[in-house]
Design a protein around this nucleic acid. Sequence first.
RNA 1: CGGGGCGUGGCGCAGCCUGGUAGCGCGCAUCGUUCGGGACGAUGAAGUCGGAGGUUCAAAUCCUCUCGCCCCGACCA
Length: 575
Amino acid sequence: MRLSQLFFTTLRDDPADAEMASHRLLLRAGYVRQLGSGIYSLLPLGFRVSKRVEQIIREEQDRIGAQEMEMPVVHPAEVWKESGRYYKIGPELVRFKDRGERDMVLAFTHEEIVAILLADLVQSYRQLPKMVYHFQTKFRDEPRSRGGLIRVREFVMKDAYSCDRDEAGLDKSYREQFAAYERTFKRLGLEAIAVGADVGVMGGSGAHEFMVLNEFGEDTIVLCETCGYAENQQIAEVRKPDPEPEDALPMEDVDTPGATTIDALATFLDIPASKTAKAAFFVTGDGRFVVAIVRGDYDVNETKLVNAIKATGGLRPATVEEIVARGMQAGYGSPIGATDSVVVVDELVMRSPNLVAGANRVGWHVKNVNVPRDYTPDVVAEITEAREGDACIRCGSPVKLRKAIEVGNIFKLGTDFTVAAGAMYLGEDGERHPIVMGSYGIGVGRNVACVVEAHHDEKGIIWPAEVAPYAAHLVSIGGAKEPKVTEIAERLHARAAEAGPRHEILWDDRDESPGVKFTDAELLGMPWILTVSPRSLAAGGIEVTERATGERTTLPVHEVERMLVEGFETGEAAA
RNA sequence: CGGGGCGUGGCGCAGCCUGGUAGCGCGCAUCGUUCGGGACGAUGAAGUCGGAGGUUCAAAUCCUCUCGCCCCGACCA
């Protein structure tokens, strides 16, 4: 490809609205352009990278026997009503009416469609297992997109679905996908960590998320470097030391003016936060009022809380009026005397004696509160957020908390979707059974951005060879005045093109100064930069620079021609 | 949805407070000189100042509404 012909432009200044390196570089180097919030165009360079990423994913899916297909982006809402998710998912699911006033939705994901196809196609256990996948656009009207391609509203996802006879089959499919993901991310040049994850609105019995550490990540993962334990903070548990045993003392009101926070309370009474109880108030999507109690030195983990009370539609913080209406006082709250509330108490509070809790009176707390002596929990569960330095649940070493980006996930779905769609098969036993599904997603654009996050320097992108849009970037210096240079550049360019699509190179044939060309070459990030100039020819041929290391060698023209055809990955260039 | 910020040629920005009819750098076009690390000179093109309404003799500037984008939070396979 001649750079002079390419549909793109590089920017000399950093775009104002790009905080992450990947976003800034992809914009500056002319790989993507933004159309709206969370909506992007892939320019030819970005499109090529995207296709290379897809190809890696495809090869690894094919390797485990998944079959590529394609499902639609626009669905009749009926399908989503049957599975129940039409009502379960909020405004992220885009709804509209077609000309016939029929309810329609934009594809949020494709479990429903697979389940319908299964109901249609599969009758017998002999037809199972099956695994299918596609690369298809999803639209999720997220409340807030951010980070360039990291969190967008419209994106292409590889979503695969396993369809098995039973749980054992699902386990096998799940393990195969797990392994395929490990190979995929390795080939993409990403260090992805598989962490245990919450199943969320997908339901099902188990899930892993593949996470890449990144300070701009939206998830926090809990890691143990000693034993390798890794889980999303949403579900991660840690060992909490047993409190010192004490005899339960009688409750006693204590005047605590202005102490509306745990910090203020602990300071005022000169006690550790671990001797206090913290109350948090929520309202569930199904309208229940929830008081969650954790010890003052911990925070409430909302995901765990949701799971503990099986709250459909999630949680929102309660308003002051809602709290007061149930006999409690924000800032001085506790379940003592509360009415019309679901009281969820963390297990650590249950075994912590004589805590200071709210008196439900402004300015007052109560000392020596003991549960269940002083109030009755409706639910006792582990609902705290793991903290940096807490003891690993497995080995007891201090854990680390790290921000991370989710580059892929795998879910054991079970039979919810197939039961809803009536996707049953006739088993060897002569009985009808629901097909057992798993679902496995990888966001393509997010992975492109993550590759750039992991592979760049202050000058620009450094593509791993397997995802680079072109095999090499050819810089010719001297322009029209140097017919010999131009002739050789033409030849290299043509030779690479003849060798096939994966060998194609990008030739900067513009009439620009060498400085501009080198700068752009480094910004664009092809793994190899080939320089042909009067100087290089005098030195014996073509200057070959490895983008990642900056190592340079000058090789004879015929040698470079050979490499263009046979590939650079073999490593001769650096030798 | 709550909080904060920003919309002025393709990109980055100034001008707004204190109204007087739009400017800088880069980029772009033409010509010439240059040519191994974002060259130089000359000439030139390009802006409904996000949109609507209002105040005023006069609005990029003041007021009201509105749209969009970014960041933090809420949210989130």
